[in-house]
């Protein structure tokens, strides 16, 4: 655990942890509201947003792409709602229509435009490039206090850190109204809470988390972190506070373990090359969910005896 670790592994792990937490926090509420697949839909429509931003600006710049992706997510949410109402179609099907069409449009735009000179392709969008977010300027733990080296940190780290912080603060500030509208929307309305606005705000927050995390780690981690850690946490406890803490712990564990297993696991088994970190983080999150589903103390529905489940 020396200079090499700081240089090659510290920043990817940190970025992975922050992205996982940024997604898992809104994921807790999405799961309780039966909107878990909004995360899935958003992470698909991010692609056309990024491609359009690239075509308009002609450069792979982070800020326009983040804006493009965010706008695409908002457009998708509005489209899903419009199709649901105009066509009287069930939400799942409406979502399926919107995100697949937008994703297909994104892929087509990407193939048709000349992106050969830039690092922008579908596989990158799906799998991210966590492994490449290294900190070249570091030469040991001492670099953590060296301003010159700190200036060379990958910019993704700063962005995802800000987003994770903002989402944590938002979760804390809106805790009470969010909880109320999630569990009993009718009651929340009688208290005068703007339930629809809160619901929309939650989806937008999820979109921001997805877009920022996507920038750093690709869409697999985004979908997996929206759903797996909160789902596993839900099987551990009945209290929402504890569920959120469990989900943060699970998200962190998935990010660290996934990265380490992907980078060093094959070496321990005698293979020469590392495997995809994004894929491994999702796999570890799945393993945690499997364990929780088999052994979590609150895995059964109320009223079902634990012996039969």
């Amino acid at each position: 655990m020396g200079a090499e670790f700081v240089q090659l592994s510290l920043t990817p792990i940190l970025i992975g942890i922050l992205a996982a937490i940024a997604c898992a926090l809104p994921g807790n509420f999405l799961i309780l509201r039966r909107q878990a697949l909004i995360g899935d839909a958003i992470s698909h429509v991010v692609l056309p947003g990024i491609v359009v931003a690239f075509l308009l600006t002609g450069a792979v710049a982070a800020v326009p792409m983040l804006i493009g992706a965010g706008l695409a997510a908002v457009v998708a949410v509005i489209l899903i709602e419009a199709i649901k109402r105009l066509g009287r179609i069930e939400p799942g099907a409406a979502m399926g229509v919107v995100f697949t069409s937008l994703f297909a449009g994104g892929v087509l735009l990407l193939e048709q435009s000349d992106t050969s000179g830039v690092h922008l392709d579908v596989e990158h969008a799906l799998m991210g490039n966590l492994e490449s977010l290294i900190w070249l300027d570091a030469n040991g733990w001492a670099s953590l206090v060296d301003p010159l080296a700190l200036a060379g940190l990958p910019p993704e780290l700063g962005r995802i850190a800000v987003v994770a912080l903002v989402i944590s603060v938002l979760t804390w500030v809106f805790w009470r109204p969010l909880t109320l509208t999630t569990f009993d929307e009718g009651f929340a309305r009688t208290l005068g809470l703007p339930a629809s606005a809160l619901g929309f705000g939650l989806v937008i927050t999820a979109a921001v988390a997805a877009v920022a995390a996507f920038d750093a780690v690709g869409s697999i981690i985004v979908i997996a972190m929206f759903i797996c850690p909160p789902a596993a946490a839900r099987l551990m406890t009945d209290s929402l506070v504890r569920q959120v803490w469990w989900s943060v712990a699970f998200a962190t564990l998935s990010a660290i373990l996934g990265y380490v297993l992907a980078g060093y696991g094959p070496l321990w088994l005698g293979f020469a090359d590392a495997v995809s970190a994004a894929g491994m983080v999702a796999s570890v999150a799945g393993a945690i969910l499997l364990l929780a589903a088999l052994m979590g103390p609150r895995r059964a529905r109320l009223g079902e005896s634990r012996a039969t489940s």
Partner: peptide, 22 residues
């Protein structure tokens, strides 16, 4: 488990896809 179907769909989708990418 007490997870709703959408959570089950999302977790299977992302985990299997992640495994596939590995």
């Amino acid at each position: 488990t007490r997870l709703a179907e959408d959570a089950a769909i999302g977790s299977i989708l992302s985990v299997f896809f992640g495994l596939g990418i590995v």
